[in-house]
Nucleic acid binder design. Sequence first.
DNA 1: GTCTATACACAGATAGAC
DNA 2: GTCTATCTGTGTATAGAC
Lengths: 169, 169
Amino acid sequence: MQLFRQRGYYRTSMSDLAKHLGLTKGGIYHHFENKEEIMRSSLRATARWFEKHVFSIAYLPELSGPEKLEQLSNFIYKGFTNHTGGCFFANTIMETSHVEDTFLTEIKRFFSLWEEALIHIFKDNRNATNAKEIAQEIIADIEGSIILMTLHKNPKILRRALNRSQDKY
Amino acid sequence: MQLFRQRGYYRTSMSDLAKHLGLTKGGIYHHFENKEEIMRSSLRATARWFEKHVFSIAYLPELSGPEKLEQLSNFIYKGFTNHTGGCFFANTIMETSHVEDTFLTEIKRFFSLWEEALIHIFKDNRNATNAKEIAQEIIADIEGSIILMTLHKNPKILRRALNRSQDKY
DNA sequence: GTCTATACACAGATAGAC
DNA sequence: GTCTATCTGTGTATAGAC
């Protein structure tokens, strides 16, 4: 998971994975059928982590809307910084989707969960269609900012995008 | 250029390039030193195209701010749709930058040109620091929207982001 | 300037011993 | 469950004929 996040799918070889797992290439095939399955498994595990630890914040009844957005921002900042390789899912679409749709299901699931979480927060405040629009705007702004953060090697760019998202409540 | 834009750097092999150029693999090496040089050349050519035909709009004295933004939007929409493979430069950062900084110079140049063009438009209207902030916000929003457009295979997502950028004047 | 032939490294994957 | 050995394909790149 770590390697795929940092280097992407194609730049990570089975030998790389083997070395970092303390196994030999052949040994991996006892646990996974092929490279694609390892990637799919990594994507799903990452999505589950975000679902459990990040997006779940949106549904906590004891928090106000702005409080939810703030906590969400902090987790997203941690999860998406430079060192972790930006957004695993966005990287994967841009790396793979023009060729095949191999991982589309897993990636779509992640973005759905994120969108739904934001919609849930904003629907206290706005009507359904408007909440959805705002949710998509926020996700686009954050993802684009991750690109610029990576380009300029400056995490403040992501921080500013997260602050903008909080201002939208 | 076409192949790199559509499939990315690593997924495009010298054999692919040869076939689409109507050459053999060996023949290419008469024109370019190696694969990296072909990519660099493609990135530079694309940046030059945007500079000449798109970003130049920002400096036309006969157009108003909103008119400039509208024309810019139309060109960016054409240049960044699904079929052309999204944003060549963003794709390339996300594909390569976590590993090496091979193409960073070329990519940075493109984003600088874009940012400067937007700053030039907004400085009629706002102070320098504010113009720069807005420019970065617009670029982030558009780039993020390209990701979502690619994911959902829906060009309207980019169109909406471009409309938002025009509303910011 | 384009070709054929080929070098060499490494990719993903499998077989079968232990 | 992990190993070694190996298969087969493909990658980038080079040499040298035409």
